Amino acid sequence: MRIRSWLATVAALSAAAAVTACGPPSDDDNNDSGSSGTDAKTATSAEDFGGMSDLEAAAKKEGTLNVIALPPDWANYGAIIDAFSKKYGIKVQSDQPDAASQDEINAADQLKGTDRAPDVFDLGQSVALANTDKYAPYKVATFDDIPDQFKDPDGTWVNDYGGYMSIGYDSDKVPDVTTLDDLLGPDFKGKVALNGDPTQAGAAFSGVVMASIANGGSADDIAPGVDFFKKLKDAGNFLPVDPTAATIESGQTPVVIDWDYLNAAETAKLPSWKVVVPEGAVVAGYYFQAINKDAPHPAAARLWEEFLYSDEGQNLWLGGGARPVRADAMVAAGTIDQTKYDALPEVSGTPVIPTNEQTEKMAAYLADNWAKAVG
C-alpha cells in the first residue's frame, strides 16, 4: 500500500484512547491576563483572554517562551522558533536541544517555581502518557480540525507531527540495507546507532517497536525487539552513542535508526546518506504537545500552541519532512504547501500505530528489561 494520507491511514488503524484531563492548576503569583481578567494559567482557549489579540498582548507582556529538547534540525524546529519569535517579538529560550523526552519532565520538576522551567513540552508517546498530571488543558483555535484520536478531548495533550521509523545509512561506508536483519552482519560491526534510550526517548522507543515487528512481535509484544538489540550488541554492531548530525557527517554513526524525517534531513548534507523504511516493519508515530501547568510564561505558552497548530506552523513542520496532524483538513481547505506535501517519502506496507494502552504496556516492559538486555 502506498501511504500518502497520513491522517486517513492512522485514523483507520489507530484506536488510541483519550487520557482523562487533569483539573485546572492552582493560581500563583503569575497573573497575566487579557481583557477578560482570566488568569493565563487557567485559560483553556484564546477566548478566555478575550480573543487572539488579547492573548497575543498578554504573551508579549511576558516577553519570553522557554522551550526544551527542540534541536534546530528536528522537524524544522529551528525555522519554527525563528518564525514565532519574529512574528510576535517574543524571545525563545531553547534549552537542552538534544535532550530526551524524559529530560523535559525532569527539568520541569527540578525547575518548578523558577522562571527557567519549560513552558511547553514536545514528548514521545510513552513519556507523554505517563505524565498527564503535569499538563494544562488548552484548546487551540483549530482544535476541531484535529481528529479525535489525536487529542485529549479537553486539550490536555494534542498530537502535533509524525513520521515513520526508518534506517538511515551511509552507502559509502556500509552495504545497502533493506531489512533490519542486514544490520546483524559483520559489515556493520560498531556501526549501528539508535536515537536515544528507549525508556526515555520516543524515537528510540519506536525503533525497538520496529525491530519487534520485524522479528515476529507486535504492538502487544515488544520483547522480540529487545531481543534483536541484544543480538546486535552481542555481535558487536550496536553503538552506545546518541547519534547527531555531527556524528553522522563525521562517520562516527554510519547507520542510524530514527524517524524518517530526521534521517531524510541528512541526505541534503551527506549525498551518500540513504533512508529506508523496512517493508513489513512499518511503524508510525506522533509526538505529543502539551503546556506545562506550572509554566512561568503561561500566555506565551498558549500563543506558541496557537502558532504551532495554525496553517503557518503546520506547514513549517511539513517543511522539515514531518507529517502535520492537520494535514487532511489543510488539504481539503487548500492551505497546505502542496509541493512539500507531495514530496513526502513513499512508504510501502501497512503501518503499525501503537495505541496509548499498548504504548504503556510496552514502556513497562522496557523499563524492566532494556537495561538487563542491552545495558
Score class of each variant (00 low, 15 high):
residue 10 V to F: 14
residue 294 D to S: 15
residue 159 N to F: 09
residue 307 F to L: 04
residue 36 S to I: 12
residue 126 S to A: 11
residue 277 V to W: 13
residue 6 W to C: 00
residue 122 D to S: 12
residue 143 F to N: 05
residue 231 K to I: 07
residue 78 G to H: 04
residue 334 G to S: 11
residue 366 L to Y: 02
residue 107 A to V: 02
residue 30 N to G: 06
residue 167 I to M: 03
residue 157 W to V: 08
residue 281 A to R: 08
residue 206 S to E: 03
residue 281 A to V: 10
residue 172 D to K: 11
residue 92 V to H: 03
residue 45 S to Q: 02
residue 241 V to M: 11
residue 233 K to T: 05
residue 180 L to F: 15
residue 371 A to Y: 01
residue 286 Y to R: 04
residue 295 A to K: 12
residue 375 G to C: 10
residue 155 G to Y: 06
residue 67 V to F: 04
residue 77 Y to S: 09
residue 140 V to W: 01
residue 173 K to Y: 00
residue 238 F to M: 07
residue 366 L to D: 02
residue 311 D to F: 00
residue 113 G to Q: 11
residue 67 V to R: 00
residue 47 E to W: 01
residue 77 Y to E: 13
residue 35 S to C: 10
residue 263 N to M: 10
residue 113 G to T: 07
residue 268 A to P: 04
residue 360 E to N: 15
residue 128 A to P: 06
residue 34 G to D: 09
residue 79 A to K: 12
residue 120 V to E: 11
residue 23 G to E: 08
residue 20 T to S: 09
residue 252 Q to E: 15
residue 130 A to V: 10
residue 48 D to I: 00
residue 33 S to R: 10
residue 53 S to T: 14
residue 103 D to L: 04
residue 346 E to Q: 07
residue 40 A to G: 15
residue 334 G to Y: 07
residue 124 G to M: 10
residue 367 A to V: 02
residue 149 Q to N: 14
residue 187 D to K: 15
residue 354 P to C: 10
residue 175 P to M: 12
residue 101 S to M: 06
residue 291 I to A: 05
residue 315 N to V: 08
residue 369 N to P: 07
residue 199 T to G: 01
residue 229 F to H: 10
residue 77 Y to D: 06
residue 12 A to P: 01
residue 82 D to G: 03
residue 122 D to G: 08
residue 20 T to H: 04
residue 21 A to S: 14
residue 91 K to Q: 15
residue 177 V to H: 11
residue 298 P to W: 02
residue 348 S to L: 13
residue 324 P to D: 11
residue 159 N to M: 15
residue 243 P to M: 04
residue 226 V to I: 15
residue 243 P to C: 01
residue 25 P to I: 09
residue 84 F to C: 03
residue 244 T to C: 06
residue 343 A to I: 07
residue 11 A to P: 00
residue 211 A to E: 13
residue 217 G to Y: 02
residue 29 D to P: 00
residue 24 P to G: 13
residue 52 M to Q: 09
residue 302 R to I: 12
residue 319 G to L: 05
residue 324 P to A: 12
residue 143 F to M: 06
residue 148 D to N: 13
residue 326 R to V: 12
residue 140 V to M: 09
residue 13 L to T: 14
residue 66 N to H: 09
residue 190 G to V: 01
residue 105 I to M: 09
residue 231 K to P: 06
residue 371 A to H: 06
residue 285 G to C: 00
residue 294 D to Y: 12
residue 55 L to N: 13
residue 130 A to P: 03
residue 194 L to I: 13
residue 71 P to V: 04
residue 6 W to P: 01
residue 36 S to H: 15
residue 267 T to P: 02
residue 11 A to S: 12
residue 197 D to R: 14
residue 134 K to A: 15
residue 192 V to T: 13
residue 25 P to M: 07
residue 302 R to C: 03
residue 273 W to N: 05
residue 181 D to N: 09
residue 122 D to M: 14
residue 161 Y to P: 01
residue 260 D to A: 12
residue 113 G to R: 13
residue 73 D to E: 14
residue 204 A to K: 10
residue 117 A to F: 03
residue 6 W to L: 01
residue 295 A to F: 13
residue 280 G to D: 00
residue 193 A to F: 00
residue 14 S to Q: 08
residue 249 E to N: 07
residue 221 D to A: 14
residue 232 L to D: 12
residue 133 D to F: 05
residue 209 V to T: 03
residue 290 A to E: 08
residue 363 A to G: 03
residue 158 V to C: 09
residue 334 G to Q: 08
residue 116 R to D: 15
residue 288 F to G: 00
residue 211 A to N: 09
residue 372 K to A: 15
residue 336 I to Y: 10
residue 257 I to E: 01
residue 157 W to F: 14
residue 277 V to N: 08
residue 34 G to W: 02
